[in-house]
């Protein structure tokens, strides 16, 4: 059984591998959202049909939300802002 080592800045005893592994482990688990992995593109495994279905439903949902009438308060707000600006100071 190996004795437990505490890293004190010296790699000469061959513990570099262990330290490296710990660093890799920490990178993999403590910083899962680092930009490096964010940049990587996963291989596309979605079928065209699946992609189409998702796209269609997403647009449908969004269009449904967009189709709601603009509340009067927004029109009033914009009118008030415009009037405030056009008034001489």
């Amino acid at each position: 059984m190996r004795p437990t080592r505490v890293f004190c800045g010296d790699f000469s005893d061959g513990s570099a591998d262990i330290e490296g592994s710990v660093a890799r482990f920490a990178r993999a688990h403590m910083m899962p959202h680092n930009p490096q992995t964010d940049e990587q593109d996963e291989a596309p495994t979605l079928s065209d049909e699946a992609q189409k279905q998702i796209g269609r439903k997403l647009r449908l949902l969004y269009e449904q939300l967009e189709a709601e009438p603009i509340p009067d308060k927004f029109v009033d707000l914009l009118r008030a802002l415009a009037e405030k600006e056009s008034k001489p100071r």
């Binding site: 940049e39 593109d41 596309p44 495994t45 979605l46 079928s47 049909e49 699946a50 279905q53």
Partner: peptide, 19 residues
């Protein structure tokens, strides 16, 4: 691009669109 891919992938998995 990566986020969009992952979102689609997640949706496909949840909705059972993955073969």
């Amino acid at each position: 691009k990566s986020r969009v891919n992952r979102a689609r992938q997640r949706l496909a998995t949840t909705l059972g669109l993955n073969d």
